[in-house]
Each structure stands twice: as C-alpha cells, then as structure tokens.
C-alpha cells in the first residue's frame, strides 16, 4: 500500500505556509499533535469502566454528561507500556462518524500554531511503517512533534474491532 504517498498529499493539501493549530500532548517521552479542529473537548481523566471482550486498545467506557463514550488507550495502540493512573492524564474527545470517542493521553501540554514548512512527511524508518495515521513530523524549537490523524486511528480501530468480533463469532460457530 502506498500509504506514504497518501499521507504526503494529505499534508500538501493543507494550507501550506498558513500554519495549523494543533493540540500537543505527551505519550511517554514523545510529543504528539492532533489538529485542533478534530478535538471536541479535553477532559480530566475520570473513572473508566473496563469492557470485557473489547479490543485491547479500548480502555473502557466513561459517562460524559449522560452519554456512554468508549475510551481508547493510545499507549496500547502504539504498543507502549501501560502507565499508572495519574492526575496529569487527560481524555481527548474527538468525533468519528457522529459518535464521540475518547483517547487517553499522558498529559496535554499546549496548543501550538505550527507552520507547514516545519512539517516533514513521515519517514518509514521512524514511524515503523505505521504511516497510515501519522501525517508528518513537525520541528518546533528543536523538539519533534508527531502529527497524528486521530480520525484515521479511530476508524482503523473500529475496523479492527469489527474484524475481531467477526473472527470470534466464526470460531464460535
């Protein structure tokens, strides 16, 4: 799959030079960024009820003002070690297909405006081939911010979830 190519066109398709606003957050020692328009809300970490038989990157469900919302653990998604609960953690809420979904991050550092010039396409060596949802890498004051396509991550997760379920039911039969 020539996803590398796809991601690059994705970036150049944006307002080049105009810059974009991103929400930067940390996961482990790395800093990631997502487009601010993809973020609906950032809420403090709260009680997450685990859901048995859910795909492993689903941390559980939360009650957000009377709605039940699934929360994904990006650490698990990226294969990082699990982090102990900390008050620094946040849930970044985004929307996919009209449904709200939360993503747990270690901490939210800031909202940044980055210029498109500082963004480089993802190098396969760095991203380990998982370029599907990595839009690029931005250099900001000597540090690197990995720009993520949150929508993509969630739609991938959904696809995986459905596949898992299909497999499971096939086995049962």
């Amino acid at each position: 799959m020539s996803s590398n190519h796809i991601s690059q066109t994705h970036i150049t398709g944006r307002e080049v030079g105009q810059g974009r606003q991103i929400v930067a957050f940390s996961l482990g020692s790395e800093v990631y960024g997502v487009d601010i328009e993809k973020v609906r809300e950032i809420i403090p970490i709260q009680k997450i009820v685990p859901v048995p038989r859910a795909p492993d990157f689903v941390e559980g469900i939360i009650n957000l003002r009377g709605k039940v919302i699934p929360v994904l653990d990006l650490r698990k998604h990226f294969g990082f070690a699990k982090k102990e609960y900390s008050t620094e953690q946040r849930i970044v809420l985004t929307e996919s297909d009209g449904e709200s979904i939360g993503v747990i991050v270690d901490s939210v550092s800031t909202v940044l405006r980055i210029s498109q010039d500082s963004v480089e396409g993802p190098a396969p060596v760095i991203t380990g081939g998982e370029v599907d949802y990595i839009q690029g890498i931005a250099k900001v004051n000597d540090s690197l911010i990995v720009l993520l396509d949150l929508t993509r991550i969630i739609s991938d997760a959904e696809k995986r979830a459905l596949k898992d379920v299909d497999l499971a039911s096939a086995v049962v039969k």
């Binding site: 038989r53 859910a54 039940v68 994904l72 979904i101 979830a161 379920v165």
Partner: peptide
C-alpha cells in the same frame, strides 16, 4: 445506552 460502533458487537454484552 449505545456504546458506539467500536463496542457494538461484543458477545454477551
């Protein structure tokens, strides 16, 4: 309540 697509087809839930 609905749980969203990602959790919609879990066996036994």
């Amino acid at each position: 309540k609905e749980m969203g697509k990602i959790l919609s087809r879990l066996k036994g839930i």
